[in-house]
Design a protein around this nucleic acid. Structure first.
Lengths: 127, 127
DNA sequence: GCTTGAGCTGGAGTGCACTCCAACACCTAT
DNA sequence: ATAGGTGTTGGAGTGCACTCCAGCTCAAGC
């Protein structure tokens, strides 16, 4: 696979893939005779995993650190586990925040609905 | 209340409060004889609400738009409700993403734990 | 009456995470 | 053999959301 196909399959741009390589998120792939990047299939799974971390708010610097540990092999297993445990706690905190705000949205939406029903009755109190 | 106390009570910096006023998130408060901002208590609730939207990923531009609608009064009720409904859907999508990734973290953490148990047995497969 | 502390303005600077570009090289199909 | 598509590099630029700063005014306490 060359960079365009990886881009197409992952939804990232070729620029982003090169950028990820530059900062160490993705290991430098092999090159063909013309100097173009040639990726192997497993990188797709890795990129998907990185996207999961990204989508759930892990910072770039931490993803870079995790990627570096991974490249260093099995000896870093405990360190990586700790990073994932930390991220797990971060995810749970977000779940709580989101659940709370979801309930708030429901209350406010219901408020707006009744306000629209009885237009001008209660007035438009707050927020 | 002047700006320092609002900062203390909300956790935002005075700079951020002035910035929020500049972009229209917070209505310009009254001023005392010395030209200093004097806030009334209800602004605290509004700021807390803004922080909820912020913490759950509503973009600044959208918060500004919501704030603008709110200042325009009851006539904009329907538009605001629609914004909250949209944000509600956004929150639910995030909940799904987080729940999925939480499960993934659990699987990977368990993997790492068994790898640490049987060091060198299975090898350190992926991600 | 002077220091201390809080606040004021306008504008520059920061950190993050990309995103775009110019100028060039190479492969494939017509 | 030439046009079009895909790739290369290094470096500059973007958008978001603040954050910091210089140089100033003001008010209150000792």
């Amino acid at each position: 696979m060359q960079i365009g196909e990886v881009a197409r399959r992952t939804g990232l741009s070729a620029d982003t893939l090169r950028f990820y390589e530059k900062i160490g998120l993705i290991a430098p792939p092999a090159r063909d005779q013309a100097g173009r990047r040639v990726y192997d299939a497993p990188v797709l799974g890795w990129i998907r995993f990185l996207e999961q971390l990204n989508a759930t708010g892990m910072k770039q610097a931490d993803r870079v650190q995790y990627a570096a540990l991974r490249r260093q092999g099995p000896a870093t297993s405990a360190a990586r586990r700790q990073m994932l445990e930390r991220h797990r706690r971060h995810i749970q905190a977000q779940l709580e925040q989101l659940t709370e705000t979801l309930a708030l949205m429901d209350r406010k939406i219901a408020d707006y609905e009744s306000t629209e029903q009885a237009m001008g009755q209660t007035g438009d109190s707050d927020e």
